[in-house]
Design a protein around this nucleic acid. Structure first.
Length: 298
DNA sequence: GTGTTTGTTATCAA
DNA sequence: CTTGATAACAAACA
């Protein structure tokens, strides 16, 4: 389940490897993964270079460099949803995205030699590198949008980034006031904060010592402050550790994230709480598996 | 055959 | 208007 730290890890790696690279071929193996008409999608990319790679929340945004005479800027949006992977395979074979990886490790991560049965789109570069979009469950997508559409999507769908100055105790206080949904549902809402998903919401609430089912409007001043600091700390630490691999997330080199071993509650139902050693409770909230400590979180 | 996993959107109901 | 619940999307795994 790629959330902000995982997508940011992919973004940073791709910035190092494909900025300025020219796309020479695009292959759509599963039509519905490309959200534009196939002919337009391919034409918008082939013969163009990647100019920038940005991100808002869990959405990756590749800016496509326009040629002379084409004045409107286009962007390639990539959303991994639940099981999407972006894998860059360098020409040759042994190295993937500039890193060498044992064949065993690579095969268990991405399901063997690429393309495989989960490969939906392949983007080939002039230097021979190939970028594979794999997606077991087909929820993920790639979409070409112009500047105007991009701005609309960001404005309509995404609140402040957790590590930006726009997310503050003041912002949270204002948004939480009189909210009658639970704090977990609030934190999962991309329009409130961009980029948090099930893992980092559970982890942030554990650090903030707040029960996920608490009504958002019921948090007091010191709880809001601690929550703000906890989100910051968790997201920073998760990015430093290249994200969490729980199910099938891997970075663009096929490597797993290191934050998994630092998880306090997520995926640890019935295991002892790292703080008080009592059993972590696993229940369902906001339609999601929810993990918390009934003793440490109030 | 059942339940579970989750990012996002749509739809319906209170 | 707000919120919650549910399905849909789709596939694998226990």
């Amino acid at each position: 389940m790629p959330e902000l730290p995982e997508v940011e890890t992919i973004r940073r790696d791709l910035v190092e490897s494909i900025i300025g690279s020219e796309i020479v071929a695009v292959k759509i193996l599963y039509l519905k993964t490309a959200k534009n008409k196939a002919a337009f999608f391919v034409k918008a990319l082939e013969g163009h270079k990647i100019e920038e790679i940005n991100r808002i929340g869990k959405l990756l945004i590749l800016k496509i460099k326009q040629k002379n005479g084409e004045n409107e800027s286009l962007h390639l949006l990539v959303h991994l949803k639940m099981t999407g992977q972006l894998i860059l395979v360098s020409k040759g074979k042994k190295t993937v995205g500039g890193h060498s990886l044992s064949e065993d490790s690579f095969e268990s991560s991405v399901g063997g030699e690429l393309p495989n049965r989960h490969t939906r789109i392949i983007i080939e570069f002039k230097n021979g590198d190939r970028l594979f979009f794999n997606d077991l469950r087909k929820f993920g997508y790639l979409k070409i949008v112009d500047e105007l559409e991009l701005e609309k999507i960001i404005a309509k769908g995404y609140g402040p980034e957790p590590l930006s100055l726009k997310l503050s105790v003041k912002y949270l206080t204002e948004k939480l006031r009189n909210k009658k949904k639970n704090i977990k549902a609030f934190l999962l809402d991309q329009k409130m904060i961009a980029g948090l998903g099930n893992i980092y919401v559970d982890e942030s609430l554990f650090l903030a010592k707040i029960r996920p089912m608490r009504l958002a409007g019921s948090l007091n001043e010191s709880e809001i402050k601690l929550l703000y600091q906890s989100i910051n700390k968790i997201i920073k630490k998760a990015i430093e550790n290249r994200g969490t691999t729980f199910n099938n997330y891997v970075d663009s080199s096929g490597r797993k994230g290191n934050f998994s071993r630092l998880l306090n509650v997520y995926g640890r139902g019935k295991l002892p709480c790292p703080t008080c050693k009592k059993e972590i409770i696993k229940t369902k909230l906001a339609g999601r598996g929810t993990h918390y400590c009934g003793y440490c979180q109030n």
